Simulated scan of single mutants.
Amino acid sequence: MDGIDMLLHAPARLQIAALLAKVTEMEFAKLRELLKVSDSVLSKHLAALSDAGYVALRKAAEDGRQRTWASLTRAGTRALDRHVAALRAIVAHLPAAAE
């Protein structure tokens, strides 16, 4: 399907991209809390998004601990926009949901 990005198709990765699209960057622990996943699951998803160039990771010491921040790159923003547009096109013919 045109525009569907299989890397972003995974629900957790789509949620990561959507959360990062709203901010300049987000700390790993906050992402983990919002997604309700383990450190290892989040690390795996962030690594895949980073390898694709969709997410930039920044590590720095803060409060005496090593911390990681993630941000959506321009390529990630473009991919997310294309993916969301493709999803909207797929469901465009559906009637609006009743409230």
Rank of each mutant, 00 (worst) to 15 (best):
I16D: 01
E62P: 00
L19M: 08
V23P: 07
D39H: 10
A29R: 11
A89W: 09
A18W: 09
I90K: 15
A89Y: 09
L72V: 09
R13C: 02
L20H: 05
T24Q: 15
A61I: 07
T73Y: 05
A47E: 13
V23Y: 14
K36C: 13
T77W: 10
V84K: 03
A97S: 13
H45T: 00
I16A: 01
S71G: 10
E27R: 10
I16V: 11
R82A: 12
A61S: 09
S50V: 01
L35E: 10
L14A: 04
L57R: 15
T73C: 03
A98Y: 08
L87T: 04
H45D: 02
K44Y: 10
L19R: 02
A79M: 12
V84E: 08
K36P: 01
E33P: 00
A60W: 08
E33Q: 13
R58G: 05
D39G: 03
L8H: 03
V84W: 04
A61Y: 09
L19P: 01
A85S: 13
F28A: 05
I90Y: 15
S43M: 11
K36A: 15
S38A: 10
V91N: 12
M1H: 11
R67S: 00
H93Q: 11
A75F: 02
L87M: 11
A98P: 04
I16M: 06
A21T: 03
G64W: 07
T73M: 08
L8T: 01
M6S: 05
A89H: 11
L35Y: 09
K30E: 15
A10N: 07
L87G: 01
A60G: 06
R88S: 05
T24G: 14
L34K: 14
T77Y: 08
V84D: 03
W69P: 02
A75Y: 05
E62W: 01
T68V: 15
M6G: 00
A29V: 10
V91G: 09
S43A: 15
S40L: 09
R58N: 14
S71V: 01
Y54T: 02
R65Q: 13
K22M: 10
E99A: 13
L34N: 12
T24P: 02
R65F: 07
E27A: 11
S50L: 04
R82I: 01
A97E: 14
R67G: 00
A60P: 01
E62L: 05
A98I: 14
A18H: 10
A29H: 05
V91I: 12
S38Y: 09
M6E: 14
I4Y: 10
A21Y: 04
T73N: 07
E27S: 07
D63S: 11
G64E: 09
I4N: 08
Y54D: 00
D51Q: 12
A97I: 13
A18F: 04
G64Y: 04
T73G: 04
I90P: 00
S50R: 14
H45R: 02
I16E: 01
R78H: 11
